[in-house]
Structures are given as C-alpha cells and as structure tokens.
Amino acid sequence: MKSFEVVAAIIVCGGRVLCMQRGESKYEYVSKKFEFPGGKVEPGERNSEALVRELKEEMDIDVQIAEDDYFMTVSHDYPDFSITMHAFICKVDDCSFTMNEHSDFRWLGKSELMQLDWAPADVPIVIAIEDSEVLDGKRL
C-alpha cells in the first residue's frame, strides 16, 4: 500500500475556519468530501515549507507558517493508500483566496464543523478543533 506524508492548513479568519470541498475523485471515500487544504510533502521539504507551497498552488494565498503553528498529526489508512497528515494553524487577516483545485468551500465556526461530510482523515482534526478553547494560543 502506498503511503504519503501530507500537510494540512487550519485556516482561521475572523473567528471562522476554512473548510474546502474536494471535487469528484476516483476514490469514492474522499470524493466530494470536505477537507483542510494542503497536500503532499516533497522530499527534502520541511512540513511548513510544503504547506506554504501547497496553499500557493491550490489557493493562490501567501501564508507564513512557523513550526510552532503545528496543531496535530493524524495517521489514517484508506482502502488504497495511507497518509500521515500534519496539521498547522494558519491565522490570516485577509479571508480572500482563489479556488484552483476544490469545488466549494465554507467558512464555519468551530461548533459548526461537524455539520459537513469530512474526509475520514480530517475528522480527528475537526474533533480536536471543537474540543479546543484555544488553538495553539490562537483564539478562534
């Protein structure tokens, strides 16, 4: 089974969290599911560098991510591949972005997040966000 190291951004703007919806996928279990934006870590890349690159490619936004913005890591086995996903909190002042790869998005308060149909690997992050008073020192 293939295994991937990936990064995800918990983008927070104006007290809301950005939730991105995937488009159609050959894998039914992630098709049209919501997720935190991000992507694969390239060889030799630090996780924070990978996330900055992926957000620029997927959403045309520039963010600064420090290693202390790290939130949590999730390992998940899908039927066809497995991932280890490192999530970082990315607080932004400007909520605008370009949707280059996703089909839809929502800005939601943390108590509203579980209303969406999330990709299974993202669910533990959603639960941790809902259970957090403060996300790594950054109030939602």
Score class of each variant (00 low, 15 high):
133 E>G: 03
6 V>S: 07
70 Y>V: 08
71 F>T: 07
76 H>I: 09
32 K>P: 08
63 V>S: 01
6 V>T: 14
138 K>L: 03
98 T>K: 13
117 D>N: 02
113 L>D: 03
113 L>A: 01
122 D>G: 01
81 F>R: 04
31 S>W: 11
113 L>V: 02
76 H>K: 04
95 C>T: 09
45 E>Q: 13
21 Q>E: 02
91 K>H: 01
47 N>H: 15
100 N>H: 09
99 M>Q: 12
46 R>F: 09
83 I>M: 00
5 E>M: 14
78 Y>C: 12
77 D>P: 02
116 L>P: 04
95 C>V: 02
38 G>K: 13
139 R>T: 15
110 K>N: 09
132 S>L: 00
71 F>I: 01
69 D>P: 02
102 H>Y: 15
80 D>A: 11
104 D>T: 06
89 I>M: 12
96 S>E: 13
37 P>M: 04
5 E>S: 13
96 S>H: 11
44 G>W: 12
8 A>C: 03
29 Y>A: 07
86 H>F: 01
58 E>W: 03
125 I>N: 00
138 K>D: 05
72 M>N: 06
25 S>Q: 08
71 F>E: 00
108 L>G: 00
24 E>Y: 14
23 G>P: 05
53 R>G: 12
27 Y>F: 10
61 I>Y: 04
48 S>K: 01
35 E>Q: 11
135 L>K: 00
85 M>L: 13
89 I>E: 10
93 D>P: 03
106 R>E: 02
61 I>M: 09
39 G>P: 06
60 D>P: 03
112 E>C: 07
123 V>D: 13
135 L>G: 00
2 K>V: 06
11 I>V: 15
32 K>S: 03
33 K>L: 07
128 A>D: 15
54 E>V: 02
98 T>D: 14
105 F>T: 05
28 E>Y: 15
31 S>P: 05
44 G>H: 09
102 H>I: 09
8 A>P: 01
13 C>L: 10
54 E>M: 14
49 E>M: 08
108 L>N: 03
63 V>P: 11
92 V>G: 01
64 Q>C: 04
69 D>R: 03
84 T>C: 10
30 V>F: 12
105 F>W: 08
94 D>R: 14
61 I>H: 11
16 R>T: 14
129 I>S: 07
28 E>D: 14
95 C>D: 13
90 C>I: 06
113 L>N: 09
74 V>T: 00
29 Y>M: 06
62 D>Q: 10
129 I>L: 15
9 A>T: 06
13 C>E: 08
75 S>W: 00
12 V>M: 09
82 S>E: 10
111 S>T: 15
126 V>G: 00
50 A>G: 11
100 N>R: 15
55 L>Q: 12
51 L>H: 05
63 V>M: 05
117 D>C: 00
57 E>V: 13
40 K>A: 04
75 S>C: 04
12 V>T: 14
136 D>H: 12
66 A>C: 06
79 P>F: 11
47 N>T: 09
79 P>N: 09
82 S>A: 14
20 M>L: 15
40 K>Y: 04
104 D>S: 13
28 E>G: 11
45 E>R: 10
64 Q>T: 07
